[in-house]
């Protein structure tokens, strides 16, 4: 069975949400709300209620970045300080904790931010070539529902789209 992509453009959130509601209620056998990709010019505040909870792993990566920043920052400074014995320390600590806390704090923030950004780039699947079904109207004022499904579901999905006043339907068979 060939895989197909289908994209329905809607003029407003209400119609699109109603269509998603139908997919949630299994109006098309074999299609669930988890198969829905929803595209919009903004993040609608109710989108989580409509699509159901979907996880984001970014906070965990941020936490790892912060832990790495603290460890690396402190060890980097301490190893540098303990290797630099040319300068007389005058009775002061070779690894001074108060100043290292300040610098470790900065390192923690830096690595947290960098790891958050890297996690964002990976989890959002940016840097990928845009799918051909993308419509420029999505960044203008329309919303879209996209599926990547077996060919046999296409007509049923189109039927649901039409029921909810779809403005335009685009489809593509994957080779």
């Amino acid at each position: 069975m060939k895989k197909c992509r289908i994209l329905g453009l809607f003029g407003n959130f209400d119609d699109a949400f109603a269509a998603i509601g139908d997919f949630r209620n299994h109006k098309v056998d074999g299609i669930t709300v988890d198969d829905v990709t929803f595209l919009s010019p903004i993040e609608h505040p109710d989108i989580d209620d409509v699509l159901g909870p979907r996880k984001s792993h970014i906070p965990k990566v941020t936490l790892c970045g912060a832990a790495f920043g603290i460890t690396f920052g402190f060890l980097f400074l301490a190893s540098a300080q303990s290797n630099f014995l040319i300068q007389p320390q005058g009775g002061k600590a070779i690894v001074p904790l108060p100043s290292n806390i300040v610098l470790t704090y900065e390192m923690m923030i830096l690595f947290s931010v960098i790891s958050t950004v890297i996690a964002f780039l990976i989890t959002t699947r940016l840097f990928r070539k845009r799918k051909s079904l993308y419509s420029e109207k999505i960044t203008l004022d329309q919303v879209a529902i996209e599926f990547e499904v077996d060919e046999k579901y296409i007509e049923s999905i189109k039927g649901v789209f039409k029921e909810h006043h779809v403005v335009e339907v685009r489809e593509e068979v994957q080779t």
Binding site: T37, S40, E43, I47, I58, P59, S112, T116, T123
Partner: peptide, 18 residues
């Protein structure tokens, strides 16, 4: 390559808030 899909928006919001 931003498309504005729900995955991107969800992660975008999290990232921005963090």
């Amino acid at each position: 390559g931003w498309r504005g899909d729900d995955r991107q928006w969800r992660n975008f919001r999290r990232t921005y808030l963090i």
